[in-house]
Design a binder for these strands. Structure first.
Lengths: 124, 124
DNA sequence: CTTGACATACGAATTCTTTAGTACTATACA
DNA sequence: TGTATAGTACTAAAGAATTCGTATGTCAAG
């Protein structure tokens, strides 16, 4: 059975990025990090992290009075899933038209081409 | 308050793809195309297309009794915007980590590399 | 012991997304 | 002429995403 296709929402992703950076984090850690960019309530962050836990993206364990959260899956795996979902939905699953866009918008230049070349060489 | 979505939602995209394919389309055209994949009500399609019109993605003009819709912007431009938004949100705006994923998941192979090479050559 | 700080639990409001029902209108046609 | 058909307009409602308030519990400092 194929695993349920569930993707991170924008705000969930924002929080997950911060947790991946830190490997472990409390609600307060994330709350303070988010506060530097925008106004947000402590309980909002708590709710989001609880949601991420029930969705299986975060694991928590109690330490003293507070929960300490950590990622349930590596960043690469989750981000990779989001990329695949996006490619499926927007480009019908094929990378080629995506690459066409990246070249035309100059997001891929010689530099990126060299990177790809080198990575492909390493895989072989 | 959640910031307004600047890009197409999944269902909106599904409809836009069909309109781009046809260049012009009535609600009935899209309704019938969608019906081949899933159960959906005629009025649902109508509502979605009205939303797309108020959001500025579709233009309509009356022809006989029905509206005929057409895209307000070319597909490349809109899809390009979605890719940009995704890259910003998920990869902090840089193409490189995105390419790393595509290489590692074998979505970029020799074939795609050649395509990129050729396109870069054409741009120069 | 009381109080303030800090944590979770719970509930709820708001907005966006998606879906669809009902009412109404104009046209075609039997 | 009256009726079925095909269209729009309007309304609504469910579910997801996002936000936050209030209640409550615990611990440490005074």
């Amino acid at each position: 059975m194929r695993p349920k296709h569930t993707t991170l929402t924008p705000q969930e992703l924002e929080i997950m990025k911060l947790v991946w950076q830190r490997d472990t984090a409390t609600v307060r850690d994330i709350y303070e990090a988010l506060l530097e960019h925008r106004k947000i309530a402590y309980t909002t962050v708590m709710t989001m992290m609880k949601i991420l836990e029930t969705k299986g993206y975060l694991k928590k364990r109690r330490q003293d009075r507070a929960f300490v959260y950590r990622p349930a899956h590596p960043k690469n795996q989750v981000i990779g899933g989001m990329l695949r979902e996006f490619m499926d939905r927007v480009f019908n699953g094929s990378a080629e038209p995506l690459l066409v866009h990246l070249v035309k918008t100059r997001h891929i230049r010689e530099k990126e081409l060299q990177i790809i070349k080198r990575m492909l060489g390493e895989i072989k």
